Amino acid sequence: MSQKKTIPSPIDSSQGSKKMLTAMVGIGVFCALLIVLTYEGTKERIERLKAEALEQAVFKVIPGISKTRIFELDNDGIFIHSDGKDRSKKLVYAGFGDDGSLKGIAIEASGQGYADVIRILYGYNPYTQTVVGMYVLESKETPGLGDKIEKDENFLSNFNALSVALSEDLTRIENKVAPVKQGSKANPWEVDGITGATISSRAIGHIIGESSSIMIPLIYSQLEKFKLD
């Protein structure tokens, strides 16, 4: 005698679907909670590590310093002392020698690269009116090509004494920093590019050009604000 097969009723199928849906929602909620807790648990450490890396970068872009001090640009366009915790503020980093004399100002800037936004820090010497160092803080440029902006010595030498001289009335950059094709640099305000990393290297030139046009006249006009005490 053949066995009869039991066919699940519509009600049984409906209840099974509800149980599966409830389980999926529960797993989703648990995963979301886990992500939030992980983020909150590591956020403070990540921010601290970023701050430490940024401080080390300041020493790299301003030669000969032993002390630093953070300043922020307030809503009135005035630089004031800052603890640097509010990252929504426009921050700059003054570097001082052993004798307390100002050696330069490190300025953060960013702009679009080939793959994503590039964040950099560059050092400004107000006495020679030159950029004296550049360091890439964050980049997702193509390994082996675009990332040459971080390690190509010829390219980095652009920023040993890149001219950002002000006009006679000290209100603007006389010649805006501009990128040029590799090997064609003819002026001290030009950034010699990298063959094979053209977009990335040009991006650095444009980033500094845009940033310095705004920040350097402001900084130079308030040099007396940048003091240790």
Rank of each mutant, 00 (worst) to 15 (best):
I62Y: 09
I46S: 11
V117M: 14
D98W: 01
F96G: 07
Y124R: 08
K60L: 10
T130D: 12
F96C: 06
G26D: 02
L137F: 02
R45I: 12
G97N: 14
L102V: 06
H81T: 06
E44G: 07
S82F: 03
K60F: 00
K43A: 13
P126Q: 04
G97L: 05
D99M: 10
S66W: 02
G84N: 09
T68S: 10
V36S: 10
T68E: 10
E55T: 09
L91D: 10
T68F: 01
I35H: 09
L121D: 08
D83T: 02
G113Q: 04
I107C: 08
I27Q: 03
I46R: 11
A32S: 12
V131T: 13
G64M: 03
G111A: 02
I120P: 02
T128V: 09
G84C: 12
F79V: 11
V36T: 09
N75Q: 12
D98P: 02
I35A: 13
V132C: 15
R48Y: 10
V131W: 10
E55A: 11
V132I: 13
Y114A: 08
K140W: 05
E72D: 10
I46M: 13
A109T: 05
T68L: 12
S82R: 08
L54E: 15
R69K: 15
Y127W: 06
V136T: 15
A106P: 00
P63W: 01
N75E: 14
E138C: 04
D99Q: 10
S101K: 15
K50M: 12
G144F: 03
K67D: 08
V58K: 10
E72P: 07
D147C: 08
G64Y: 02
A53E: 08
N125G: 06
L121C: 08
A109N: 06
G95L: 04
G95E: 04
A51P: 00
L49A: 13
A106L: 04
E47K: 14
P63D: 03
L137N: 02
F30W: 02
I80L: 14
I149L: 05
V117P: 00
I27E: 02
G64Q: 11
L73G: 12
A32N: 03
P143R: 00
T42D: 01
F96E: 01
L145A: 09
E40Q: 15
R48F: 04
F30H: 00
D86K: 05
G113L: 03
V92Q: 05
Q56A: 13
E52P: 00
I149C: 12
E141P: 03
P126I: 07
